[in-house]
């Protein structure tokens, strides 16, 4: 892996429009049964504009930024050797159906440990008004040669 990736900030990816049915589909896939995830009426009764996405939904928005990282020509990351090490989501407000979200990736850390490399990538996700919604942080482990 190219150590010069550290500190690199990528161009924002195309905006992601959060659809109500996508939120419901994702909710069912992660065994979410809370009506606020599934039923617009229940969500509105709880003070939300529409159904609220589960806490890990931001990974769907983040995915395009990680694809940028893996495709970086001088990155030197062999995606067949990549294992997901850590994941974190830090919210300023929940994701709600109807949001238009834009993610921007920054590589915050590159480390080597016993032949493996670890890259920490932080995707900052903002809404159409430019306000912060969530930061998704992934640490990917790139296994060294066996």
């Amino acid at each position: 892996m190219n150590p010069e990736l550290q500190g690199r900030v990528f161009p924002p990816v195309a905006p992601y429009l959060v659809g109500r049915e996508k939120v419901r589909e994702f909710s069912r896939a992660v065994f979410a049964s809370n009506p606020i995830n599934l039923d617009p009426e229940a969500a509105r009764a709880a003070g939300h504009a529409d159904v609220v996405a589960p806490p890990t939904f931001a990974v769907v928005v983040q995915e395009a930024t990680l694809a940028q990282l893996l495709a970086e020509p001088d990155g030197g990351i062999d995606f067949t050797r990549v294992v997901h090490g850590d994941q974190r989501f830090s919210y300023s407000r929940p994701i709600v159906a109807g949001d238009e979200l834009t993610a921007t990736l920054a590589v915050t850390s590159i480390k080597s440990l016993g032949g493996h490399s670890m890259v920490t990538a932080e995707s900052t996700i903002i809404d159409a008004a430019g306000a912060h919604v969530v930061t998704a942080i992934s640490t990917l482990v790139v296994r060294g040669d066996e």
């Binding site: 896939a29 992660v30 979410a32 606020i36 609220v52 850590d86 830090s90 919210y91 407000r93 942080i137």
Partner: peptide, 29 residues
């Protein structure tokens, strides 16, 4: 891994009553 992470927080969502109450969530695989 993201499926395991996603389902593991659901009991917390149900306890808290609203998925919007989860401000921050992290795991190591």
């Amino acid at each position: 891994g993201m499926l395991t992470m996603g389902l593991a927080v659901q009991p917390v969502v149900d306890w808290a009553g609203d998925p919007a109450r989860v401000l921050d969530y992290q795991v190591r695989f």
